[in-house]
Design a binder for these strands. Structure first.
Lengths: 141, 141
DNA sequence: CTTCCTGCAAATCGTTTGCATCAGT
DNA sequence: ACTGATGCAAACGATTTGCAGGAAG
């Protein structure tokens, strides 16, 4: 999807969920539409501050949380427990290969749940599979 | 390994790393030897408080961190970003099936990395694979 | 014009640090 | 006795909340 369409899509989803379209939210949509990696609340705040120097941290947090609940963003706790967000890919189930240096993220389709036989009689709800590595660019440096 | 042996093993490892064996550390070893699930720092603190009402949170944190660095405990950030600890299984590589209700944990040997072909030329460092579900006991309730 | 959203400030939670005292070796 | 470990209090970073004014519908 082109960036502009992504932004429109996000805004449309906010609107249809009954949320007002404020300048700050418009900008949030833009930030995530033009970023393919994970962003911390601080990253987002810093990017917003460029155009809205008066934006506050709590507005960023509030909107990030809301957008996650709405499914527009994916919320994610990294290995170190740090919270990050990224525009959610709604297309299909997949997992990520994440560069531990620059956090560039590549999706892949392989899902280990297909083949897994789990011990015990657990009723499976959810799973988490991520691969961490150093991307080609970061290896070169 | 029997519980008593586990405790001795933990204490021996602390001692050989040059750490003093205090009552608090003895008790930490006992707590983790007799628990097979994950414990939050608060869980640990609460258990310690029963016998040592004067124990402080920072001592718990300090020792948990130290024991993790030493490899006696496994440190783990859950899906919700919360930090937990558990006695570490040093035997072999494995993954976990975790009950989202009671957090009882079952290990299994299957590792998805065997079959995975990753896109891009990432140099793979690490991976994370967990399955979340409801255990048999928690389903019955 | 009404209701929701924002920005500010202050509260809260989990975790860490500095320091004087206490305990293990 | 020496040195590391403890408990206290205070600092700290990240996130959340209450509230009054401001903007979207």
């Amino acid at each position: 999807m082109a960036e502009q369409d992504l932004i429109k899509d996000m805004l449309a989803r906010m609107s249809s969920s009954g949320w007002r379209i404020t300048d700050q939210r418009r900008m949030l949509a833009q930030i995530f539409a033009s970023s393919d990696g994970y962003l911390t609340p601080k990253d987002v705040y810093d990017q917003m501050s460029v155009k809205y120097p008066s934006v506050s941290f709590d507005t960023v947090y509030r909107n990030l949380r809301m957008l996650s609940e709405m499914g527009v963003l994916e919320q994610f706790y990294f290995m170190d427990g740090g919270l990050k967000f990224k525009g959610s890919c709604l297309k299909h189930h997949h997992h990520h290969l994440i560069c531990t240096n620059c956090e560039k993220t590549v999706a892949f389709d392989y899902c280990p749940m297909d083949k897994l036989e789990v011990p015990g009689n657990y009723k499976i709800i959810n799973h988490r599979f991520e691969v961490y590595g150093i991307c080609e660019q970061c290896q070169e440096v």
